[in-house]
Structure formats: structure tokens, C-alpha cells
Write a protein that binds this DNA or RNA. Structure first.
Lengths: 208, 208
DNA sequence: CAGCATCCGCTTTGATACTG
DNA sequence: CAGTATCAAAGCGGATGCTG
């Protein structure tokens, strides 16, 4: 990218990560940890392969991303964030917070990955009863699964289905988002298990 | 801008503010409040005038910026952030925090505005003695002045010189940044007034 | 002068095809 | 799997011109 040429902390940050797709590449690496090229591609529908390659190269050069060759049995390349790159988490979090209200409507033909729900889940769910035994919720949005577990007063997320979920919620991505945001009730989704579990995870007063 | 076409809070936020220059336009409006077109241009060295016009139009349409025509005596157009736009402050703040270490070196021919120091000042100074009478510091970097005042345990910033500063620090922008970051001592700058004032504003342990 | 719009060359992006 | 190569289209940057 062309530099803004400004001696300003914001401009200099954007000189490094302001290029198109960069912050979404970082989102994927934050959500998935060390990833293969094709997995990144899968999590970034719409990116052209030459751009993904170019962005990874540039981010590596900037010290945000590292590339490690796994040894022969695995024989694949893994991309991860450096420590410096992981410090971008607050930037991505605040972008997600600001963008969350825009999730109220789904644009025509917008792609979806269950992983992406994690950005919203971490902002909109807490554990209000941290002394009780931990609970696990499985979210199935548009058929893709994601797991939410209570941990230290907050929640953790993992890709894929849960092993022994206390509650499974499933429905369209829009409805799952609606329930997370507090705009819809659990009853607007198909559920299996104890629906009370979700009330435990919702903040005192539902946020916008 | 072309949409990412992803049903994700981060991607949707970037659909609105991810275009080149957008976040710097927002930085200016956060720092200066209601501004005229030409003042924005002055605070955004390097932007092409057609791009500034186009970005303001797009941000207005997206509900981030408002344009008000001031009545005949003033007869000028003022641009400001909407409430929704002002909520981008945390995004800009986290970008500034991440970019702050990059300020250690000043690229060749990088432009500078004293205003921009405010982003770093708000992150790196606090009032450790909030019960004492308030103090005022004037920063003069590359000849441009900015005022820092203690307020409620933190600090506030204003453009321009102070009226009765307790301390005036002046020097090159790089050195002023170095002192704010704790890499340099007050003695590396020209100072007038009580240098102890700065120790009051520096956090317990100097941050990176 | 403030607030743009137009034009034009250059760079970046996007889509697709192809490769070790 | 992890990219490179190619090329058209879109976006950007710089200069300049126009309008109240």
C-alpha cells in the first residue's frame, strides 16, 4: 500500500494494516489460530487467491504474521499471528462492536461462516453465574456449528460442534444473531436442551 | 467501496469505513469537532480534494457524518460526526494504541500536525494526583502548539497554545513523542516552567 | 476564497486460468 | 496444497477548472 505519509499513530497503523482484506485476514487468524492457506481462503469468501498470497507476504514482512513449515509428516505451511499481530485483537473487537448493529439485516447473497459469530458472541454473552458448574452451548447457524463455553466469568468459543452441550440452538444465521443480540427470543430458534442456560449468559440488561 | 459480501460484524463495519482515508477523516472530526472542508483538508495532508469530497458524501450517506449549513453571517458548511459516527472513537483509539510504537521513527518527509499528538497523549498521560489543583501543559512540536489539561484523573487536549501553562515543552515532533512515550527525558526538550508537572502526568511505570 | 467536479495516467483489485 | 500469471476493471492521486 501506499503510505499516508503522516507522522500520526493512526495513519501509521493503517499504513501497515489498512489495505483491503488485511483486517479480515487478521480476523481469521485471531479466530482460528494457526491456519493453512486453503483454510484462510475458505474463511475469506470473495478474496482472490493472488491477493491472499500478496497480503500474507506483506503482513509477514511487517512482522504481523509468521509462516512456519510443518515437518514432513504434516508437510504443510501454517500461518499465524506474531505477538505483535495478536495485539490487533482490540482493534478487531472494537470494529466488531461498531459493526454489530449492522448485522440486523443480511445483505443479498452475503456469505456466512459460523466462526464469525464468535466476534459477536464474545461481545454479547457473559457468565452471570460463574460459581455454578460451567455450561456449554452449541450454535448451529445455517447448518454450521460453533461451540460456546463459560470460562472465568466470560465465554470462550470454538469452531465445530460441542461434545455434551447443555443447549443446542439452531436456525438461520440471521435468527441466531437476533437471539444473541437480544432482539429475538430463544423460542424463535429450534432448541434442544435447557433454554434457561441462555438466560444465564445474557447480560443483566440486554444490550443493543 | 465494494462490499466484502460477508455476513460478519467486522466485514460490515469495514464496508462502511474501510475505504482509504475514511478512518483518517473520522480521526480529524474526532479531534477537531465540527470542521470546514478546508480545515479537514489541512488536517489530512496528501488527500486529493475530489476524494475528500467523495468520502464525506459517502460517510454522510452512511449516517456517520452530518453536514450543516451555517446561517448567512458565517455562511459556511460544517461537517461533524453523528452520534453513530462518534461511536467510532474506540476503533480509532485502539488503532492509535497499536500504531504508537511505530512513532519511534519518523519516515522520510512525513507530514505532522500537533493535533495528532492528542491521540498519543490520551493514551500515555494520566493525572496521578487528581486531588491537587489542575495543571496545564503546552506542547510545541515542530512549532505547532497543543494544550493538555488535567481533568477527572485523565487529561484533555485542545488545539492551539495554552493561556497560563504551568509547563511549556518544545522541540521536534519526534522528541516530543519520545518524551510522551517515556523514551526520552524532559531535559531532551526545551522547557519553560516546572518540569515536575510532567512526572505527575506520567503513569506509575512508563509504558512502552 | 470555500467547496467542490472533471480529466487523465497510474496503481490496485478481482476473476480466472494455470503450475510445482 | 499453496500458490503464480495474466488481464480487464475499478480506484486513487495530481492537476486544473468551475461556481457561488
Amino acid at each position: 500500500m501506499r503510505s499516508y505519509g503522516q507522522y500520526c499513530a493512526v495513519a501509521k497503523a493503517l499504513d501497515v494494516i489498512g489495505d483491503r482484506w488485511n483486517l479480515l485476514v487478521i480476523r481469521e487468524l485471531l479466530l482460528r489460530g494457526a491456519s493453512r492457506y486453503t483454510d484462510l481462503q475458505g474463511g475469506l469468501p470473495g478474496i482472490a487467491t493472488n491477493l491472499l498470497a500478496e497480503r500474507l507476504r506483506a503482513l509477514e514482512q511487517a512482522g504481523v504474521v509468521t509462516r512456519e513449515e510443518a515437518p514432513p509428516p504434516v508437510a504443510t505451511t501454517l500461518f499465524s499471528l506474531t505477538e505483535r499481530g495478536a495485539q490487533l485483537a482490540p482493534v478487531v473487537r472494537e470494529l466488531a462492536r461498531w459493526g454489530a448493529p449492522l448485522m440486523a439485516e443480511r445483505g443479498d447473497g452475503e456469505a456466512f461462516r459460523a466462526q464469525w459469530l464468535a466476534m459477536v458472541v464474545r461481545l454479547s454473552l457473559v457468565d452471570r453465574l460463574p460459581d455454578r458448574p460451567p455450561v456449554t452451548v452449541e450454535l448451529r447457524a445455517d447448518g454450521e456449528a460453533m461451540t460456546v463455553e463459560t470460562a472465568g466469568g466470560g465465554v470462550r468459543t470454538r469452531p465445530g460442534p460441542a461434545e455434551h452441550p447443555d443447549l443446542v440452538l439452531s436456525g438461520s444465521a440471521e435468527r441466531v444473531v437476533g437471539v444473541l443480540a437480544g432482539r429475538l427470543d430463544v423460542r424463535d430458534l429450534d432448541h434442544e436442551g435447557d433454554p434457561e442456560v441462555l438466560r444465564r449468559l445474557r447480560p443483566e440488561r440486554a444490550a443493543a
